[in-house]
Amino acid sequence: MGYKFIDRIKVPEDRFELRLSGSGGQGMIFAAVVLGEAIGLAEGKNVVQSQSYGPEARGGASKADVVISANEIFYPKAMKLDMLLAMTQEALDSYLKDLKEDGVLIVDTSLVTDIPVDNYYGLDFTHLAKNEVGHIMVANVVALGAISCFTGIVGKEVLTNAVLKRAPRGTEDKNRKAIDVGFEEASKLKK
């Protein structure tokens, strides 16, 4: 009786967990599905992608998790994040606590202004999408390009192919550009 072990348990090291968070309509689930396909199909790893959502199709908090492992993935949701993308202030406020101490934090500085930690990557995804690519709707794809650069969990080419497979016809050039912009801007910041 009274056997204690929880103070000795370790977070499983074979998992890489990331969360894309923002508000409904920002394409977080789309971005997570693309990441899942790029990593699970092209890179041949196990992935589980899940989301939680409210009844609204636009607005409201939206988060999508991707768990990546070389081994069988038991628990389908994130336990302790290795990476968090926050596209809104509300998302950052809600999920920062789930990020590992040495986890990678990426925020959209056009919409997130109050960042209570020093160690993070801030990029103006929404403005970059609007000004550099020409369409605010691809801010999520710009962020994907940055994720590829910051984390290295997926190669830029594999990611581009995965985006193009899912993107509506006629938007190929914009999406390719969006990844390039995200990747390049990220490489300027990468430590």
């Binding site: 072990f5 348990i9 370790k10 499983p12 038991f74 628990y75 389908p76």
Partner: peptide
């Protein structure tokens, strides 16, 4: 169902800790 995914994970973690 989904609880089994958590149970398999918990089992793996607890085994690591010698339970």
């Amino acid at each position: 169902g989904s609880v089994s995914r958590a149970a398999l994970q918990a089992t793996a973690i607890a085994r690591e800790a010698g339970v």
